[in-house]
Measured scan of single mutants.
Amino acid sequence: RKEMTAACTPRRRIINLTSVLSLQEEINEQGHEVLREMLHNHSFVGCVNPQWALAQHQTKLYLLNTTKLSEELFYQILIYDFANFGVLRLSEPAPLFDLAMLALDSPESGWTEEDGPKEGLAEYIVEFLKKKAEMLADYFSLEIDEEGNLIGLPLLIDNYVPPLEGLPIFILRLATEVNWDEEKECFESLSKECAMFYSIRKQYISEESTLSGQQSEVPGSIPNSWKWTVEHIVYKALRSHILPPKHFTEDGNILQLANLPDLYKVFERC
C-alpha cells in the first residue's frame, strides 16, 4: 500500500510523520478485503446518474454509490500519497476573496446577518489561508500566491479535474471546517474536505460537464463527458487505489441488486 500512486510524480518523498502513518493504519484496520476484491475485478455496466452506477462482479449485479466511493478513493490517495502530488495549474489565478464571496452568497454556506458582513468574512478567509499557504503547498500541492490567488490544485489521478463549480464552497470550508490546531486532526479533516471537493457530486455535474483533463479519443470531437470520466478514470482507479471500509457493506453505498443465475431462471419461465 505504501507504493500506491494514482498520479505520476517525478520522485517520491518518504513521509514518516506519526500522524500520517496513524491515518494510514486506520484505513488498513477499517478495510474490507472482500469489497476490495469485488472492486478490483468488477465489470463496469454503466452510470445511472452522477451519484449511482451499476457494476457486475462474477454472477452478481451491484449498485454502487459513485459519490461515496470516489470520496473515499480521493481521501485514501491523499493519505497514502501525502506530500507526493503533482499540481493542476489553473488556467488563470482565482482570487480567494472572490471565491469566498461566491460561497457566502450560496445558501449552502449557511451565512446569516449575525455572522457579520460577507466582505469582512471573505477578507478573513483570504488572510487565514495565506498564512497556511506554505503547508498547503508542501503537503497538498494546493498553491496560493502572495496576492491571495489560488493558482494550483493537487493532481490526485492523472487526467482528472475536480468539478470546479464546487471550488468556492471548498475554499470556505478549508477556513471553517478544518481542525487547524492538532496535526493528525488537521491532516485528516483537510484531506476529507479535499476528497469531498474532488468527489463526483450530482449538484455540480450536468450532462455537459467534463471532468477530464483530456479530449476524447476521436479527433475533432467534444470533450469527454462526465460519464466517460466516471467509467474510464474514476472506476479504473477504484480497481487498484481503494481499500473500501467495512461500513460500506452496511450503509447502502454498495448494494447487491441481483444474482444473475437467479434472473436467468426467471427469464426461462417467461
Rank of each mutant, 00 (worst) to 15 (best):
R1T: 09
A6T: 12
A7I: 12
A7P: 13
R13C: 14
I15A: 11
I15T: 03
I15G: 08
N16Q: 06
L17R: 02
S19V: 12
S19G: 07
V20C: 12
S22M: 14
E25V: 14
E25D: 07
E26P: 13
E29S: 07
Q30S: 08
Q30A: 13
E33V: 12
V34K: 10
E37F: 14
M38G: 02
N41A: 05
H42W: 14
S43Y: 13
V45A: 10
P50L: 04
A53I: 09
L54A: 08
L54P: 00
Q58D: 03
L61K: 01
L61G: 13
Y62T: 13
L63Y: 06
L64Q: 02
L64T: 10
N65C: 12
L69Q: 01
E71F: 03
E72M: 07
Y75V: 02
Y75I: 02
Q76N: 13
Q76W: 15
I79R: 15
Y80F: 04
Y80E: 06
Y80K: 02
Y80P: 02
A83M: 02
A83C: 02
V87C: 10
L88E: 05
R89H: 08
S91F: 14
S91I: 11
E92N: 04
E92F: 10
P93Y: 05
A94P: 05
P95E: 06
L96T: 03
D98M: 08
L102Q: 04
L104K: 00
P107V: 09
E108G: 03
S109H: 01
T112Y: 15
E113M: 04
E114H: 10
P117A: 15
L121M: 03
E123G: 04
E123S: 03
Y124M: 03
I125V: 14
V126F: 15
E127F: 15
K130A: 15
E134Y: 03
M135Q: 02
D138I: 05
E143C: 09
I144V: 04
D145I: 02
G148I: 01
N149C: 09
N149L: 10
G152T: 03
G152L: 00
L153A: 01
L153E: 00
I157E: 05
D158Y: 03
D158R: 06
Y160E: 00
Y160F: 04
P163L: 05
I169Q: 10
F170A: 00
L172N: 01
L174H: 00
A175S: 07
A175K: 02
E183T: 02
E183M: 04
E188G: 03
M196Y: 12
M196L: 13
Y198S: 02
G213S: 07
Q214Y: 07
V218T: 05
P219E: 05
I222C: 06
I222D: 08
W226D: 06
W226N: 05
K227N: 08
T229V: 04
E231Q: 10
H232K: 07
V234Q: 01
Y235H: 13
K236S: 13
L238R: 01
H241R: 08
H241Y: 11
P244N: 15
P244F: 14
K246E: 12
K246V: 12
F248Q: 11
T249N: 05
T249S: 05
E250Q: 12
G252T: 08
G252D: 04
N253V: 03
N253L: 04
I254L: 07
I254F: 05
N259T: 06
P261A: 04
P261C: 10
V266L: 15
V266T: 13
F267E: 01
E268G: 12
E268K: 12
E268C: 14
